[in-house]
Computed example of a mutant assay.
Amino acid sequence: MITTKSRNLDTPITIGSTEFRNRLIVAPMQQYKGSPQGYATEHHIQHYARIAKGVGFLIVESTAVSANGRLVPNDIGIYSDRHIDPLKRVTAAVHDQQTPIFVQLSHGGRKSAPEVTQRLIAPSAIPYDDFYGTPAELSVSDIEALIEDYRLAARRSIEAGFDGIELHAAHGFLIHQFLSPLSNHRSDAYGGTPQGRAKLLRDTLAAIRSETGPHYPVIVRVSATDYAEGGLNPQELALMLKPLAADGLLDAVDVSSGGLLPVQPADTHPGYQLPAAAIMKQHLHVPVIAVGKIYTRSFADQIIADGLADAVAIGRPLLEDPDYAQAMIGLQA
């Protein structure tokens, strides 16, 4: 039997019904290399195949579920069947490294790229800043149409060969905008209470599950704090997620922070987001993934051994050194 103290980065982890070979995950990182139509390119094939070696699994960059919800003009997308074949070439290249690959499904909401957004939308007509401008408040029928976009994106994700889905509910994008009381001032079923603010997340996960079934890994990336008074905090967010996990809608939580407002954390030391992950782990009975300047093998092993998180995701070092993760796995604790 593996005890908590004997676990380290090399210990296999089960998320949903799938076991992964170790607990080092490649975090999603924008590549800014999509075609004008949102297609993955040769860059994505080469980049993801290179950084995939040795890790437990890899999460690709934000992948738009709507042409109207791209985070940047050169995002990749999954909002039409034409996006499937280019993504298939990416998943095949990563599978050649014997590594599973997840897609990150996203919609920018009020932070969608102005250059390619015909109608800026959000839970409430509250702007992020002057650059993006004031969004239109979504009607219930608008919300239902968006949920359908996510459902179809999940279907395409499976067809494209992805082994799991990460739903992007962090960094100030659409689902995060619904979760936070600072950006969601609605008084209908999609606002008001924590349960109401979590309804879009619940309904979207249920739509995704209608395509994936219960055994396909579905995880959620969240911002555990808005770095502002009256915003989300780790304990409140954990309590919002707990019933979703209990109902089998999500299999793990990837804990980041910020992005809802144009403010930055005062301190970004190594592991600065770890306390939020640890708080969420106290409340949730699904694996918790920590991210945020966790760049050494010894630090990652200590986090896992101490039970502060169940897995560690790294991103930026791989942009400078594509073999960084492989070296990290190869080091001794």
Score class of each variant (00 low, 15 high):
residue 131 F to N: 14
residue 239 L to R: 07
residue 78 I to S: 01
residue 131 F to A: 14
residue 245 A to D: 11
residue 173 F to G: 12
residue 313 A to T: 06
residue 122 A to L: 14
residue 29 M to N: 04
residue 200 L to R: 02
residue 285 H to I: 10
residue 300 A to T: 03
residue 95 H to C: 12
residue 237 L to C: 09
residue 127 P to M: 04
residue 11 T to H: 11
residue 7 R to G: 06
residue 105 L to H: 03
residue 118 Q to T: 15
residue 41 T to L: 09
residue 95 H to K: 12
residue 14 T to G: 12
residue 20 F to Y: 14
residue 63 T to S: 15
residue 324 Y to R: 03
residue 314 I to G: 11
residue 208 I to Q: 05
residue 124 S to R: 15
residue 120 L to K: 02
residue 139 S to L: 11
residue 278 A to D: 07
residue 208 I to F: 09
residue 111 K to G: 07
residue 81 D to M: 01
residue 126 I to E: 12
residue 116 V to W: 15
residue 319 L to D: 10
residue 22 N to M: 02
residue 301 D to V: 03
residue 99 T to K: 07
residue 191 G to W: 04
residue 12 P to H: 10
residue 198 A to V: 10
residue 82 R to K: 10
residue 75 D to S: 08
residue 278 A to S: 08
residue 238 A to Q: 01
residue 45 I to H: 01
residue 69 G to M: 02
residue 140 V to R: 14
residue 95 H to E: 12
residue 286 V to M: 06
residue 30 Q to D: 00
residue 280 M to R: 04
residue 259 G to F: 04
residue 89 R to E: 12
residue 322 P to E: 08
residue 215 H to K: 08
residue 129 D to W: 02
residue 316 R to P: 07
residue 289 I to H: 05
residue 93 A to R: 00
residue 2 I to Q: 05
residue 170 A to W: 04
residue 57 F to K: 06
residue 183 S to R: 08
residue 178 F to L: 11
residue 325 A to H: 10
residue 288 V to G: 01
residue 113 A to S: 15
residue 312 V to M: 06
residue 207 A to R: 09
residue 283 H to I: 08
residue 172 G to Y: 04
residue 244 L to Q: 06
residue 5 K to A: 15
residue 286 V to I: 09
residue 246 A to N: 10
residue 333 A to I: 02
residue 73 P to H: 11
residue 53 K to H: 04
residue 326 Q to V: 03
residue 233 N to A: 13
residue 53 K to E: 08
residue 157 S to W: 09
residue 88 K to Q: 05
residue 176 H to N: 03
residue 62 S to D: 07
residue 293 K to W: 02
residue 125 A to S: 14
residue 191 G to P: 00
residue 85 D to H: 09
residue 140 V to A: 11
residue 242 K to A: 15
residue 35 S to C: 11
residue 282 Q to F: 13
residue 325 A to M: 08
residue 10 D to V: 00
residue 226 D to L: 04
residue 70 R to C: 04
residue 169 A to D: 00
residue 110 R to F: 12
residue 163 D to S: 13
residue 170 A to L: 06
residue 174 L to A: 14
residue 13 I to D: 08
residue 297 R to P: 02
residue 19 E to S: 14
residue 317 P to A: 11
residue 40 A to Q: 00
residue 89 R to H: 09
residue 193 T to H: 09
residue 251 D to E: 09
residue 176 H to C: 00
residue 168 H to R: 06
residue 155 R to K: 13
residue 308 L to W: 13
residue 100 P to L: 15
residue 210 S to D: 05
residue 189 A to C: 06
residue 323 D to R: 05
residue 197 R to S: 00
residue 40 A to T: 04
residue 121 I to F: 14
